[in-house]
């Protein structure tokens, strides 16, 4: 059984007002337990709206969202409980920090779960470890940390709830390459350690190409592609038509093919392309 399933999910913003806009249009998606799904689409394609439905922050205009086979919008209590099972990290999550100390901020989620004091502090330490937040920072004010540290603390605040499903909306936006790689590694580590399902929204093709196992492409509120990265990145023309880029490695592979170099399909990360090209050289090819 899929852990998350949407049934003809639609969402309309400002229905009936002067600025009415359809953000989601009949979205049907199934996500199995333990999957690592990347969601891509350009700005305004509905991907952020979609992920806010997964934990019941937005209610569907029509259609249903099922968590373990049950409608999350059935009643208020279920919607509240869903938020602890589906941890959602917003875009620029560092702007939600508010507590006096880093430790207290990370503990906000677990405290709302009404856990015991010992359990809360255990979870704070665990989440801080997963996100690479050193315990020396625990008594500092979150507002005086650097941008990258703030981001880690904010993500730790969600991971501290130990969600079965971790949803991240553009977790690497505005970070330097080292910061990006660090956060993506933290996410992979969390998944490896807990077996959690991860949904990663991004417009960085490089990020999702590197770590996601399945890609869902949104355009104008609809799912236009759904498959493995190799499948999705083979539709180069279609991706470009909806304003998306393909990873640099896939681009290079395509250009090599155009030059007559027989690069195999499914090269979309730098490592894969490197191996493919080296293999071709060994065979004594044209490279």
């Amino acid at each position: 059984m899929p852990v998350i399933k949407t049934e003809s999910l639609s969402h309309v913003y400002g229905a009936g007002g002067p600025f009415e806009s359809v953000a989601l249009d009949n979205v049907n998606i199934e996500i199995p337990q333990g999957a690592f799904v990347g969601i891509i689409g350009h700005t305004g394609s509905g991907k952020s709206t979609f992920v806010q439905h997964l934990n019941g922050l937005l209610a569907p205009t029509s259609g249903r969202v099922l968590l373990d086979g049950e409608d999350i919008n059935a009643d208020k209590k279920r919607r509240h409980d869903t938020r602890f099972k589906v941890g959602l990290v917003f875009q620029y999550p560092e702007y939600q920090l508010f507590e006096e100390t880093v430790a207290r901020d990370i503990a906000f989620g677990p405290r709302n779960m009404k856990l015991s004091k010992d359990e809360v502090s255990a979870r704070v330490r665990e989440a801080a470890f997963f996100c690479g937040v050193s315990e020396d920072l625990f008594e500092r004010s979150p507002l005086e940390l650097s941008g990258g540290q703030k981001r880690r603390v904010a993500i730790a605040g969600v991971i501290a709830m130990r969600p079965d499903i971790l949803v991240l909306d553009e977790p690497t936006a505005g970070l330097d390459p080292a910061g990006c790689a660090g956060i993506l590694k933290n996410i992979s580590d969390y998944r490896a350690a807990t077996g959690a399902t991860v949904v990663l929204v991004s417009h960085s093709m490089e990020d999702v190409a590197r770590i996601a196992e399945r890609l869902i492409v949104f355009d104008e509120g609809r799912v236009v592609m759904d498959g493995s990265p190799a499948e999705v990145f083979s539709h180069t023309a279609q991706l470009r038509a909806i304003g998306l880029d393909i990873p640099a490695a896939a681009d290079v592979a395509e250009k090599l093919r155009a030059l007559g170099v027989p690069v195999p399909d499914g090269c979309y990360t730098v490592e894969q392309l490197r191996d493919a090209v080296l293999a071709l050289r060994k065979e004594g090819g044209t490279c």
Binding site: Q52, N55, L57, H80, R83, F84, G87, L88, V89, F90, P93, Y95, Q96, F108, G109, N112, M113, G157, V158, M161
Partner: peptide
């Protein structure tokens, strides 16, 4: 808009 976004983010952490 900002208040809405922050409220959503805190609700996602179980704020009521």
């Amino acid at each position: 808009e900002e208040a809405d976004k922050i409220a959503s983010a805190q609700k996602a952490r179980g704020a009521d």
